[in-house]
Design a protein around this nucleic acid. Structure first.
Lengths: 230, 230
DNA sequence: CTCTGTGAAAACATTCACAGCG
DNA sequence: CGCTGTGAATGTTTTCACAGAG
């Protein structure tokens, strides 16, 4: 059992994934799960899972595994997902629109409580029940609604300015979708969702790979699966 | 100078960021850049930058730094960003729509060459010059257009099925926006853009932090910055 | 006999510190 | 001098292997 501040970064990254799988099992009515299965589910190993979960005390039962319900509850509590989070979204563009209605955020308790954009033409427009507010309302609204987190979904050149305003409003967590690094004072945490960096890594990774034997060239695949969009 | 396959993962993650900064400097007409500046720009250290870049040979000049133009060219070449990449996007939902027009992809040479969705009501709709195609056209189109990469932007339950079809079509790189792990055969690379995992990490990180002295309560901030959306 | 919890070992990544080139 | 390239030192994460609880 380690202290909150000393949890290794990689463990923090995996916790939401453990929780996700635990909740899936919970819905299926599964009672217990082994470290091996949990590992397989998130693309890791049994030993890794045990080490990770051991950070938070004796969550498992020897000879049995982890009790799904308890594990899920414990992880939700550790991640503070047993209470709702209020989020301010800055940027009413294409990505902002997608995030406004992003189902997985809602399901996990992250509610977009307010939406901001500097474009006066968007001011006052309503989007899925949410009014676009001008940037000068940010601080007031953040305080009035008790908002905890900020999301940046503006063009890269505007990202730093928005970050400064989110920090000035008192937010201590920022999820940045803009393809730009931002500077924040110590005590404010930033996570990046930088699609360009991800896809560029992919380009590098597959370039090095063996020329890749394309699969046999039967005409029309027999795969037939789903591909709908939310 | 190390071999392509042996580049450490963290270095791969940072390369696109070095390139981004190098190109910004290039546009500003800056001639050379030091490891210290490059480090500061991406939130890293001078030593780290030098170690990273040394993976690819003697890119720098002692006493001078890195020649911006050469560095940018070299990084573009290493990341294979000196030629266009064709991308198949699966999922004509909100996130799919945002990605279709995502400027940074285009600027970096990633072109959405085809768009797929399993929903027959969307079939044939045109979106920013791109027709929505049914899933059964995937393999044929991937081959006809020489598509290199796939993007998954469908609900989590559909992600594995889509991944299977992308693999069957011969793609060896997948960027997955669905909040779900996917299994692919060896030789296929996957990167995840999982917003839920990111925001949950953020929730954990700020929960542990000191109660956080809210900044002084002057009425209305004097920050005044931009917050428009693309 | 099963499956966790955990030290000890190995692999991996970052930082340091300085030699050496321009 | 200034700033890179790099071996050696340090720190971190993963893997191993097994003791021990149920």
């Amino acid at each position: 059992m380690t202290d909150h501040a000393t949890i290794p970064r990689p463990v923090i990254r995996r916790m939401p994934q453990y929780l996700r799988h635990a909740e899936a099992l919970e819905r299926q009515g599964v009672e217990t799960v082994s470290s091996a299965e949990l590992g397989a589910a998130i693309g890791s190993t049994a030993a890794q899972v045990r080490k990770d979960l051991a950070c938070f005390g004796q969550l498992g039962r020897r000879g049995v595994g982890y009790v799904v319900r308890d594990l899920a509850r414990e992880l939700r509590s550790l991640l503070s997902l047993d209470r709702p989070w209020r989020v301010a979204l800055v940027g009413a563009g294409n990505i902002g629109r997608a995030l406004c209605t992003y189902r997985t955020f809602r399901e996990r308790g992250f509610r977009i409580a307010a939406l901001f954009d500097s474009d006066p033409f968007k001011d006052g427009c309503t989007w899925g029940g949410l009014k676009v507010q001008p940037m000068r309302d940010l601080r007031r609204t953040v305080r009035a609604l008790g908002i905890d987190l900020g999301i940046i979904a503006v063009p890269p050149a505007a990202a730093q300015g928005v970050a400064d305003q989110l920090v000035a409003a008192g937010l201590r967590g920022i999820l940045n979708f803009a393809p730009a690094r931002i500077r924040v004072p110590p005590g404010v945490r930033v996570r990046y969702a930088d699609f360009a960096v991800e896809i560029e890594q992919l380009a590098f990774l597959i370039t090095g790979l063996p020329p890749g034997p394309r699969p046999a060239d039967e005409e029309e695949p027999a795969v037939g699966q789903d591909g709908s969009a939310e």
